[in-house]
Amino acid sequence: MPERSALILGALEECISEYVEEKRACIDSFISNQYSMQATLDVQKKVLALDLLLNPLNSLWSIPYLTIKKIVETLEQVGWTALVPFFEVLPSGIKTAYQRHIEKQIQTEFLGFGGKYSERDSELFKKIQDHKVLGPLLEKNEISLSNRHINLALNKEVEKYCANQNTISDLLGSFITLGTGWYFFGKQNLSVSAMGDQMARKWAHDDASTKFIFGKKAGSAFYNLFPPQPTGKDIFIATVIIGALLMIVTTAVTVASDPVRLKLGLHRKRISILLDKIEESLFTQLKKQIKRSYKESKAA
């Protein structure tokens, strides 16, 4: 019995290792096809209208999300895990159409499966079915291993990978927002509405200074001491302008981030790490499933 079990697990490891090595050989062609500037622009042309609003929203959320994550991890290290379940369901952001496209490409074009709910046989499941040891055992129902088990394991790692990659892009947008507040208004912690308020106040100040009875210079000094209040309409217009500018800039950064990371070799490194995690996760989870089902079939 132990020898038989070792043979089965050895066959499983062989299939997973062969599958992962095949994927490693495809890394360069995949990332060059998916993350080049031309490929990115081709996709963005189709989804840009949908993503113009989501990119700035995700950028604003990324820093609070990472702050919460750090707090939860710190509390977990000292033994207080009550917030862990809450954080696990807390989204890192709203997936944009571009991000969903990239996730789908990793699933179907690179890893060869259709997502966790797909009924299409994955490349790995076909490999297991064709294996001289595992294939006959599957046909005889001596082991229970379905395409769904593989899809769930693969999908979990892909989602974590994409969430981390998306957070990097969103952080760049956050830094742009913070940098805008610091550069134009001398403050680092301004939100879009606060920047709109500051801009409207500047408009009110400049307009009042221009109309000052003793000239603009004297008016500027006077209204520095007694700042005029902007109208609600001006605050609204200024906020819309700031929001639109940030929307355009953060989207431009998002468009450029993947080609830049491709040039720096970061995508290759991260995809390689993804495959390491997939190999470990597949063997751990599928081994448990096979051992459980093999014991049950023998007991019956």
Rank of each mutant, 00 (worst) to 15 (best):
Ala49Gln: 02
Phe185Ser: 08
Glu139Thr: 07
Lys298Arg: 10
Ala163Thr: 03
Arg100Cys: 11
Val133Thr: 12
Gln285Thr: 09
Asp234Lys: 05
Leu48Ile: 15
Gln107Val: 04
Leu53Trp: 05
Pro2His: 08
Leu152Ser: 05
Ser220His: 05
Glu157Gln: 15
Arg261Pro: 08
Val260Met: 15
Ser220Gly: 08
Arg148Asn: 11
Ala208Ile: 08
Pro85Ile: 00
His267Cys: 03
Lys211Glu: 00
Tyr35Met: 08
Pro259Val: 05
Lys156His: 12
Ser146Glu: 10
Val72Gly: 01
Arg268Asp: 14
Ala200Pro: 03
Tyr98Ala: 00
Lys70Leu: 11
Gly173Asp: 14
Asn55Cys: 01
Leu266Asp: 15
Val249Pro: 08
Glu76Phe: 03
Asn141Tyr: 04
Ile27Ala: 06
Ala200Val: 01
Gly181Cys: 10
Leu9His: 13
Arg24Tyr: 10
Cys15Phe: 08
Val133Glu: 04
Ile16Lys: 06
Ser36Ile: 01
His149Thr: 02
Thr251Gln: 10
Ser118Pro: 00
Pro230Val: 09
Ala39Ile: 02
Tyr65Glu: 07
Ile241His: 06
Trp61Phe: 11
Leu83Gly: 12
Tyr161Gln: 03
Val89Asn: 10
Glu119Lys: 15
Val255Cys: 05
Ala11Trp: 05
Leu124His: 06
Gly114Leu: 12
Lys187Ile: 11
Leu134Asp: 03
Gln105Phe: 07
Ser297Ala: 15
Gln289Thr: 12
Pro56Arg: 00
Phe175Leu: 15
Thr284Pro: 00
Asp51Val: 00
Val255Tyr: 04
Leu54Phe: 13
Val192His: 06
Asn224Ala: 14
Glu279Met: 06
Asp121Ile: 03
Ile271Trp: 00
Val78Trp: 09
Ala256Leu: 15
Phe185Leu: 06
Gln107Lys: 15
Gln107Leu: 14
Ile31Cys: 10
Ile176Ser: 14
Pro85Ala: 01
Gln229Ser: 08
Arg24Asn: 14
Ala200Asn: 00
Lys127Val: 13
Ser257Gly: 06
Leu286Ala: 09
Val240Asn: 03
Glu21Cys: 03
Phe226Thr: 04
Ile94Gly: 00
Leu266Phe: 09
Leu111Thr: 01
Leu12Pro: 13
Asp28Ile: 06
Met37Leu: 15
Ile168Arg: 14
Thr254Glu: 12
Trp80Ala: 07
Leu137Trp: 07
Ile68Ser: 13
Ala204Asn: 02
Ile8Trp: 01
Gly196Tyr: 11
Ala82Asp: 15
Lys70Gly: 07
Ser32Lys: 13
Phe283Asn: 07
His149Leu: 01
Cys15Ile: 09
Thr231Leu: 12
Ala153Trp: 01
Gln165Ser: 08
Ser257His: 14
Cys26Trp: 10
Glu157Asn: 08
Pro230Arg: 09
Lys160His: 07
Leu48Cys: 01
